[in-house]
Nucleic acid binder design. Structure first.
Lengths: 226, 226
DNA sequence: CAGCAAGAAATTTGATCATATTTTGGCTTT
DNA sequence: AAAGCCAAAATATGATCAAATTTCTTGCTG
């Protein structure tokens, strides 16, 4: 049943299509602020830097535009969006309602072992903060939230939260450059304590606090920066 | 100072790219139930039926997949998604919170003339219902909501609502085939009355009622159908 | 004579297509 | 029924065309 004895292409490095790879790579770069808000994105530049063809790059860009991770500038040009203060305000509203519900639902499904795993992520996060590792902070923070929401068993809502993250991610990076990692809020301890107690309301409240404090910083930077 | 007096291209038939046209066309078909849930979508079939090249079709499909209007079946196959009951439940939750807020914000910006225009849409909707015009009902219902939300001046939230509509749109069509248009709920009169009174809470409550009744029907069909 | 600005060429970038390659699913044969 | 063949569909590439931006030239004005 094995295919012919690898007469051709003994290597099978990637079965997942190129456009998917390009998408994931770009998505990560945007999500963790490796591309600055306002930065131009050219499709030909990406084909060169990523070594991919035009079609895969094209598809990945369309997908990211549709997710709000990139914006179409009208005249065929694409760039990383600059978050506007009005948009941030709406993002805060939706994050508070949707992620509150996600956390509430996660409480029902999460086990103590899972909470320990979350705590480990948070410990790594603390380490990143104290050592000024911005990339580590951004990744850890995202990982903490997305891991928690995965337990909610609510893919539609989790996807909405994820999309919003893609929008304010680049600005979060700017916040770190502004204030440094030290001043970053971290209500995760409260969240963990509430999770262990199994009190859904307490979890939800701590989480909304965490969101509020983080987004407040973003809003402050937007007010200065724009 | 003015640009050359349009020395060239007196005709400007289509400046918008083909992939955009394909996207809009497919989006409409899905949104208003012209494609059945579960129906397979082949890219080569679309290039043939729409007379477009592969690249534009490809990009449109990626975009629609990213919006949840189509699903990638894992093995390269694409189809119109079948809404699951769990997904519907989450959609209801988010619709209620987000669209409630959208309607509340719209109250602040909408004028009496605008309300009249909304009322005209609703009148056309009534006509479609009484004459059993399913396509007219679906379009009118969508138009009523999206027009209202446009006044909220909240593009991020409006886009979220729009995305969700894309998910349950195909199922709404099935609902009409199940129950007929007669039994469809229409709380739009209450919404209009509340809008004229300028009472944001009343608008929000009427709107949530409208959503609840409509989605209840969808949920009922899903329970039977799946 | 210098500087500015408008217009045109040139370069860069995006959009589309035709084609080649690979994979998937069905079908046939034993 | 399992294994392998075949057709169809998807992926990916490169070439080609079109559009837009940049740059350069040229003419005019102060």
């Amino acid at each position: 049943m094995v295919k012919n004895t690898t007469s051709r292409t003994p290597v099978r490095p990637a079965q997942i299509p190129a456009h998917e790879l390009v998408y994931q790579q770009l998505r990560e770069q945007i999500l963790f602020g490796e591309m600055a808000p306002g930065q131009a994105v050219t499709i030909q530049g990406l084909t060169a830097s990523l070594g991919a063809g035009m079609t895969p790059v094209r598809e990945a860009i369309r997908r990211l535009i549709s997710e709000g991770a990139l914006v179409f500038q009208g005249n065929r040009r694409v760039s990383v969006p600059r978050l506007r203060a009005e948009d941030a305000e709406q993002i805060i509203f939706v994050r508070k309602t949707v992620e509150r519900e996600l956390s509430r639902r996660a409480v029902k499904n999460i086990s103590t072992a899972d909470i320990d795993r979350l705590a480990a992520i948070d410990t790594a996060l603390d380490h990143a903060i104290s050592s000024g590792d911005i990339a580590g902070y951004l990744r850890g923070n995202y990982q903490f939230h997305s891991t928690l929401y995965a337990f909610a068993d609510a893919p539609v809502m989790a996807e909405i939260a994820d999309r919003l993250w893609l929008r304010f991610g680049p600005s979060l990076r700017v916040v770190c450059g502004w204030f440094g990692t030290q001043s970053l809020p971290d209500r995760h301890k409260d969240i963990l304590i509430a999770l262990r107690s199994g009190d859904a309301d307490a979890v939800a409240n701590a989480l909304v606090q965490d969101i509020a404090q983080g987004m407040e910083k973003v809003a402050a930077v937007l007010a200065e920066d724009n």
